[in-house]
Every structure is written in C-alpha cells, then in structure tokens.
C-alpha cells in the first residue's frame, strides 16, 4: 500500500490502527505456529532417520536373501514360486492433523503372512524361499512406514515454508507499511490541525 494512496482521515487512521493490531496478533500467532511446526518437524525427522536406516538395512537384507535364494534354488524356482503369490498388500489411507497440516496415516494389512498361508506349497519349497519372502515382507512394511514419515515431513516442510513466508511478509512488509501509513496520516492530521489553528489565528487577527 503506497503512502500516497492513503487518505489522511481520522477514520482511516483508526482503520489502520486496527489493521496493525490484527497484523501484529497474526504475526505472533504465525511465529508460534512456525516454531511449533519446526519442533514437530525435528521430532519426526529423528524418527524418519531411524525408519530410513531400518529401510536401508531391510533392503540390503532382502537383496542378500533373494540373492541366496536365486543362487541355491535357481531363478526358475524363485520365479515359479513368485507366480503363486497373487495377493497384494492392502493399504488403508487415513489422515492425521498436526497443527492444521493434514498428513497421511498409512495402515497396511496382509503384508506379513504365516509361512503356511503365503500361497506356495511348503513341501516343494525351502527355507531359502521362506527367508527371502520374510525379508521382502519386512521391506514392504518398512517402505510403508517410510512413505508415511516422509510424506508427513514433506507436508510439514511445505507448511513451514508457507508460514515462514507469511511471517516474513507481515514482519517486513505489511506491518512496516501499515505503520508508515499510520505515521503519515498522523503527520498529515497534525499538520492539518496546525494549519487550522494558524488559519483561525489569521482570521482572528484580521
């Protein structure tokens, strides 16, 4: 808002004072929200680091186990056994609210199954296949957990960024401009008052 556009009236001054009050209150609240979100983000960041390192370990383990299964049993056996697994893990998406930010809550089912309910026959398979399947079940669970954590982090980061921009806009643009406008109106009003007084004195003299 350019100062030149401001009407130097008493009502405008009152209006701007109200806006300043509102902006300062909003600024305080947004700062608190930003700080709260940052705290929440760091809390989740620590959990996400653990989840990510578990995911890395699970990936290495799964790669290792499938490597052993493929070498001992052969890719033909691994491929054939994989044909018998048709069910996909079921994923339920819910939402959680962290300080107004909607983050996903992912719940999974039918990822881990008992050895006799996986779809392949026990008698024609071996522990190599069991252990590779186990490792991949763990990996899928870790991926789902990491997806929840990392999406939450991304949404929190976006919200922190947005809040930071708003705080900065209020702090460095909106409030200073309003204050400048207020000071300008005050100055103009004082001047107008002085002009009025001077005019009255002149009229009295004549």
């Amino acid at each position: 808002m350019a100062v030149e556009d401001v009407k130097p009236t008493r009502s405008e001054l009152l209006e701007i004072k109200k806006k300043i009050k509102l902006s300062e209150d909003g600024h305080k609240l947004l700062k608190k929200k930003r700080d709260g979100l940052i705290l929440e983000f760091f809390d989740i960041l620590n959990q996400a680091k653990d989840v990510r390192s578990e995911l890395d370990d699970a990936y290495k383990d799964a790669n290792n186990k499938i490597g052993i299964a493929k070498s001992v049993e052969g890719t033909i056996t691994v491929n054939s056994t994989a044909f018998s697994l048709k069910d996909y893990p079921k994923i339920h998406l819910q939402s959680n609210n962290i300080m107004g930010v909607v983050v996903p809550k992912i719940e999974s089912s039918s990822v881990r199954k008992p050895i006799n309910q996986r779809g392949y026959g026990i008698l024609g398979t071996s522990s190599y296949i069991d252990e590779a399947t186990d490792a991949y079940e763990t990996l899928v669970e870790n991926i789902i957990q990491a997806a929840e954590m990392e999406t939450t982090m991304k949404r929190l980061l976006a919200e922190i960024e947005k809040t930071k921009r708003r705080v900065n806009a209020l702090e460095f643009k909106v409030i200073p401009e309003l204050k400048e406008a207020r000071d300008f109106i005050k100055l103009r009003l004082d001047e107008m008052e002085r002009e009025g007084t001077f005019r009255l004195k002149k009229i009295k003299k004549s």
């Binding site: 018998s84 309910q117 779809g119 392949y120 026959g121 026990i122 008698l123 024609g124």
Partner: peptide, 8 residues
C-alpha cells in the same frame, strides 16, 4: 493352490 502343491 498351496494345498494342491503339497498334495502333489
């Protein structure tokens, strides 16, 4: 399928 495999 797993039952059939085991039976075979």
């Amino acid at each position: 399928l797993s039952d059939i495999e085991n039976e075979l």
